[in-house]
Design a protein around this nucleic acid. Structure first.
Lengths: 238, 238
DNA sequence: CGACGCGTTGAATGTTGTCAAACCGAGTGG
DNA sequence: CCACTCGGTTTGACAACATTCAACGCGTCG
């Protein structure tokens, strides 16, 4: 009964296989049910479908149940900046809280199921659930620290170090979800990786090629196998 | 009575000249008093004094009352990354919320007065003051968006664009505090600027020199005069 | 006075970006 | 079935921008 297609709408927070990573992690069972009551689950999104678009009214933050999401913003000159990749169990959309409208866009990199958490109702619930309030403060703080780590990466590290660090990040996040930390499929394109890491597609491609020559990686399109984890950690230099 | 030295300890939120920028902005007068009751004001810090150090137990977030603060983190290799400059009325230290200990350091760039806001008490107060809870969520969200703007800057912009953008940011923040937006003193060193912007000291220095040759800026050590605001905006390219 | 921190400038080097071409697989239509 | 296009990726040659290394100026402080 609780084992369904991961994209299924008919899952609640209590049964969701991501509940050890997602918002419920900080809550008691009865509190999870109260959270579950406000969560909205739409039908799965297909690749390139938007969760929200820059300029949309801000109403909710979102959790990834399955698939993966890319967020990006566009500056005045129309230049896009990918600001994050989100995997199952991760929360996104918190940059909209300070504004009445979204200032970034979120799009599915592949078929994805998303939980929508209406922010106003989450705030109300927080007033009576201290652990939810605290957890949400922590979530936002984590977003800040991960952004600051990306700032340090862009500011101080070479192309190889940036790519190695991203691969290790995805690897670690897969491990948290009980997936392989050495074999996985990158849901995003080379262009997305380059945009996120402040590199051109060509540079990203060259780095992948070099890592293959050094027997650090085996790359087949988007399928990645990390052949030498310590080597990659050394290259990441962080 | 309320007009004292800006570094003075004996100021409350209601009278503080930064209350139109700082936390009180979202609160009613009686709510400001309740906030004021939990705020702790220590004696002024001198240049290079720490507000908190990486590894310290996390207890509070902080507001700048006067002077300026630099935050930075240090990675495993001991490389420092300046993550922000904070001016009067601005809040810092929110990256510690997700952790029990601070993962960055905050240091005074010049003589500075700081308000300490014990986070646990702020959380409690938030449970009864919806506007405070909401405002704090917004503050953290703003920190996220400003970090993401920095990410975009580092990822996509040239040295000249980065320096121009920083100058315009400080200019705009000075204007909010009713100071000149064209003449001001940079509280941080060239090294700090370079570190923050992902550039070497030499590059920062060269950019300042070029801007002077182009009659965009007049620079005398840390004193800056923006001679051509539209020109600088053009150069910032954001 | 000399040492030191900080900032500026110059010359050489190097990593990454730019431009161009080619490849590959998937999908389409003749 | 094959030729075709198209998006995404790879590779090469070259150029550009920022870094590195070095020297020097300037003000402060012991």
């Amino acid at each position: 009964m609780s084992q369904r297609c991961p994209h299924s709408v008919e899952i609640n927070c209590r049964d969701c296989r991501m509940n050890a990573l997602c918002l419920p992690i900080a809550l008691e069972l009865d509190e999870v049910d109260r959270l579950n009551d406000i969560v909205q689950r739409g039908r799965p999104l297909h690749k390139d479908n938007y969760v929200y678009n820059c300029g949309d009214e801000f109403r909710s933050v979102y959790a990834v149940r399955s698939g993966s999401i890319k967020t990006y913003s566009v500056n005045d000159q129309g230049v896009e900046q990918v600001t994050g990749f989100y995997l199952p169990g991760e929360i996104f959309g918190m940059d909209g809280i300070a504004h009445t409208h979204h200032i970034s866009s979120a799009v599915a990199l592949e078929t994805a199921a998303i939980c929508e958490i209406p922010f106003g109702r989450m705030e109300e619930l927080s007033m009576t659930l201290p652990s939810l309030q605290r957890h949400f403060f922590k979530l936002m703080s984590k977003e800040i620290t991960s952004d600051q780590q990306l700032i340090a990466l862009l500011s101080k590290n070479s192309a190889e170090e940036r790519v190695a660090t991203l691969l290790l990040s995805i690897s670690a996040r897969n491990a948290k979800r009980s997936l392989s930390n050495v074999r996985f499929r990158l849901p995003m394109s080379r262009a997305d990786i380059g945009n996120y890491l402040g590199l051109t597609v060509e540079t990203v491609s060259r780095v992948f090629s070099r890592f293959q020559k050094q027997n650090i990686l085996a790359v087949d399109k988007k399928e990645i196998e990390i052949l030498d984890v310590p080597g990659l950690q050394q290259l990441s230099n962080t």
